[in-house]
Amino acid sequence: MNLSFYLLLIIIGLITGSITSLIGASGVMIVVPILTMFFNVSVHNAIGTSLLIDVIASLTVSYSYYKNKNIDLKSGIWIALTSIIGAQVGALFASNMGEGNLSSGFGIVLVLAGLSTFRKSYKEKNNSKTKNKVFNFKKEWQKILASLIIGFGIGILSGIFGAGGGVMILITLIAIMSFPLHKAIGTSTLIMAITALSSTIGYASRGNIDIELSILISIGAILGGIIGSKYANKVNEKTLQKIVGICFTLMGITMTIITKFK
């Protein structure tokens, strides 16, 4: 590996950390397609490596939000608990899936996430008065039960596709817990770190993590996370959602097409 290669990996990390800090999305959405399409890393190794990066980036970002009092883990702890279990189940499923199926599956998830993010940027204005009332629980135990079920589902997706579930957790905190946006991003990022750590352990136990790539990309992810968190409140959120949504969708389509022709 030469210097330009190292710099490229760090730049990838910068982008990953920035996206995580600004919209609470998992950096896995960026790392997995790049490692598989341009660095010829196997899908299983790419997901395992990206999960480790996700843990480091998410912890960095969540600490920044914590300093600004934008984390409330008390309400989100139920999602975190079952997401850990679900992540192990998902990682077990992923180990038994073929490279082609896993690549295609991840590409489809990426497209759906991109379209959802892009669509959300248009719907937020019209739904601003009702978006926090999607679920109307009369009793606390109903909210807790729903959070446990959702957390388990998020964990399974994390384990299979390597996504820490940041966007899904974010939507859950806003829709079910009625969190303000900034507190929802901070809390979901911390929960994402916990979920990603559980998935990382599952992939590491099967030898599907490239430590060298993880370290280099994580250096950039830490820097990107710190810088992005600092300026998170100054960025036009809707514009950023549209850009990220388009990028995710294009990468997902590209990844799916390339997989079909391999």
Rank of each mutant, 00 (worst) to 15 (best):
M1V: 00
N2G: 06
L3H: 08
L3R: 05
Y6H: 05
L7R: 02
L8V: 02
L9Y: 08
G13S: 02
L14A: 00
T16V: 09
S18H: 04
L22Y: 06
A25R: 08
S26H: 01
S26G: 15
G27L: 08
L35P: 04
F38Q: 03
N40E: 02
V41R: 06
V41P: 01
H44T: 04
H44G: 03
N45Q: 02
I47S: 00
I47L: 07
G48Y: 09
S50T: 09
L51Q: 03
L52E: 06
D54G: 03
V55Q: 01
L59Q: 05
V61Q: 05
S62A: 15
Y66A: 09
K67M: 11
N70K: 11
N70C: 12
I71H: 12
W78Y: 15
I79F: 15
S83M: 07
I84V: 13
I85R: 02
I85Q: 04
I85K: 03
A87Q: 01
A87W: 00
G90M: 07
G90I: 06
L92G: 12
F93P: 13
G98S: 15
G98I: 09
E99Y: 15
G105C: 06
G105A: 13
F106K: 00
F106N: 05
V109C: 12
V109F: 12
L110A: 06
L112P: 14
G114T: 06
L115G: 06
T117A: 10
R119E: 08
K123D: 13
K123S: 15
E124N: 12
K125E: 14
N126C: 11
N127Q: 14
V134Q: 05
F135D: 14
F135G: 09
K138M: 12
K139A: 11
W141T: 11
W141A: 04
Q142G: 13
A146R: 10
L148C: 08
I149L: 10
G151M: 07
G151L: 01
F152Y: 02
F152V: 02
L157A: 03
S158D: 07
G159M: 05
F161L: 04
G164Y: 08
G165V: 05
G166K: 01
V167T: 11
I169W: 05
I169Y: 07
L170Y: 05
L173F: 12
M177L: 15
M177H: 15
F179N: 03
L181K: 07
L181R: 11
K183V: 12
K183G: 10
K183A: 13
A184T: 05
I185T: 04
I185G: 01
I185P: 04
G186S: 01
G186W: 03
S188L: 00
A193H: 01
I194Y: 04
I194M: 08
A196G: 00
A196S: 15
T200L: 05
E212W: 10
L213K: 10
L213P: 08
G220P: 09
I227A: 15
S229F: 11
Y231G: 10
N233W: 13
K234H: 13
T239F: 12
G245C: 09
I246A: 11
L250H: 08
M251C: 13
T254R: 14
I257K: 09
K262L: 09
